[in-house]
Design a protein around this nucleic acid. Sequence first.
DNA 1: ATTATCTATAGATCTATAGATAATGC
DNA 2: ATTATCTATAGATCTATAGATAATGC
Lengths: 202, 202
Amino acid sequence: MGDSEKKNTENRILEAAEAEFLEQGYDGARTISIAERAGVTHAMLHYYFRTKEQLFHRILEEKVDALVHSVVTAFINPEKPFLQRIEEGISAHFDFLAANPRIPLFIAREIGKRDLGIEDKLRGNVAPLFMRIQSEINALADKGEVRSVDPVMLFLDIISQNVFPFMILPIAAPALGISDSKALLERVKQENVIIILSRLKP
Amino acid sequence: MGDSEKKNTENRILEAAEAEFLEQGYDGARTISIAERAGVTHAMLHYYFRTKEQLFHRILEEKVDALVHSVVTAFINPEKPFLQRIEEGISAHFDFLAANPRIPLFIAREIGKRDLGIEDKLRGNVAPLFMRIQSEINALADKGEVRSVDPVMLFLDIISQNVFPFMILPIAAPALGISDSKALLERVKQENVIIILSRLKP
DNA sequence: ATTATCTATAGATCTATAGATAATGC
DNA sequence: ATTATCTATAGATCTATAGATAATGC
């Protein structure tokens, strides 16, 4: 059997697993449902991935990497001045979430139950980013161009503002009589830039 | 058997169920585990609550009510001027979350899978609050005392800032080398007041 | 008489694997 | 020869209930 056929089946299982796990979480997901979604027999799933746990880890790790990566890359463009980089970083991070709205809840759900290398990933990628932001803030604060903020707090603010709406909007939007949630998200994105810049401006 | 005995068993099951469901979610929770935690036989659980689903709904509804209530009451104290009420409201809401840190993730986890009356609860309680805030903001904005903000955005900001840290701090705190997460939470609480007031001040 | 509790087990899933069969590559 | 796929089923849980027994209230 050819390599492309193999990849095809394996990938179909992976895609089905991603959909099932993102919707249902680990405990709620059924390997039978994954097989059905992929259009393969149930045994194939174990042939390729041996256990439900292994298949799940493959998906979870991919999503954790994507999320961590989205935070770091959004704020590391070295070309531009500080405030502009923050502004564009917020937008870029928000856009990533808009394209992957189920990731935050998916990760939040499973965290605490299992140990990913998520701490190491954060330590390696985020700590350097924070140090750099810290020194930039210090320099600009001395010149009176920004208010002084702890980078940890600043990024907690940014990430809270960006991530949380995707967790509650499915509930909150209909309750508040909002039909066009795409338009609302666009407003949220703009508001998030405004509120962070308000915090930084002296 | 006396009424107090009955209440005792029933309450022990409820308390055990609350702990199990908050930790594991609906799918992850086992009725056997709940019975063990409560120190009763497994059959008792069905005798008092008939099904796992019914027991779960009892817990979930209680937590949804508590969370909605915490938002509304925190901001409805009618005695004080607007900005002070916002400031105290943020703190009160934050304190509620600090006392019930597992509620947001618990609710977020189950939402979308089942239909609570959560939309009705929001509609009834929150809509009047927003209308009142809107008119206050309008009046103060005319006098130049606050910047104009849509109340929906303002509360999305406040709730994001307050809720989200409790979802990720268990992961983020160790990764950032923060050992005293209680001290960090205190800083978060203060920062949340600062950032919202920065947004509102002209 | 009614309410509460226990033991034992039915019945429904779900994950995982064994073993046979078909398809491909060398 | 090796890799992929299918059928059938073992084995492990988990929810739920049946039926017997004990405790309380009237």
